[in-house]
Computed example of a mutant assay.
Amino acid sequence: MAKCDHCGAHVSGRFARVFADESGTILACPNCSANAGIAEVSRDRAGNIR
């Protein structure tokens, strides 16, 4: 089962396919970010890692 790499919460395979980056990393999920802003939070967190 997939999990958020930021908070460790479990996410569905469908969520992982949509929101994971090209390496399979999930940087945001409904547990640690607002539903409406998951893509934006993921981009922001990815920018801070690299």
Rank of each mutant, 00 (worst) to 15 (best):
M1H: 03
M1N: 00
M1R: 06
M1C: 02
A2R: 05
A2L: 05
A2V: 04
K3M: 00
K3R: 07
K3Y: 10
K3H: 11
K3G: 04
C4N: 01
C4Y: 01
C4A: 01
C4P: 06
D5F: 04
C7S: 03
G8P: 06
G8D: 05
A9P: 02
H10I: 01
H10A: 12
V11E: 03
V11D: 08
S12K: 07
S12H: 06
S12Q: 07
G13W: 13
G13T: 11
F15K: 13
F15S: 15
F15C: 11
A16I: 07
R17N: 14
R17D: 14
V18Q: 13
V18L: 14
F19M: 09
F19L: 12
A20N: 06
A20Q: 10
A20G: 12
A20E: 07
E22C: 00
S23W: 01
S23D: 13
G24V: 06
T25H: 11
I26K: 09
I26Y: 12
L27Y: 15
A28V: 08
C29A: 07
P30E: 10
N31M: 08
C32R: 01
C32Q: 05
C32P: 03
C32L: 01
C32I: 04
S33H: 01
S33N: 03
A34F: 00
A34Y: 03
N35G: 08
G37H: 06
G37W: 04
G37N: 12
G37I: 00
I38N: 05
A39K: 13
E40G: 10
V41D: 14
V41Q: 13
V41L: 12
S42I: 09
R43T: 12
R43F: 09
R43I: 10
D44G: 10
D44R: 12
R45E: 11
R45V: 14
R45G: 14
R45S: 12
A46N: 11
A46Y: 09
G47C: 09
N48I: 06
N48K: 13
N48C: 08
I49K: 05
I49E: 15
R50H: 07
R50F: 08
R50K: 09
R50W: 05
R50T: 07
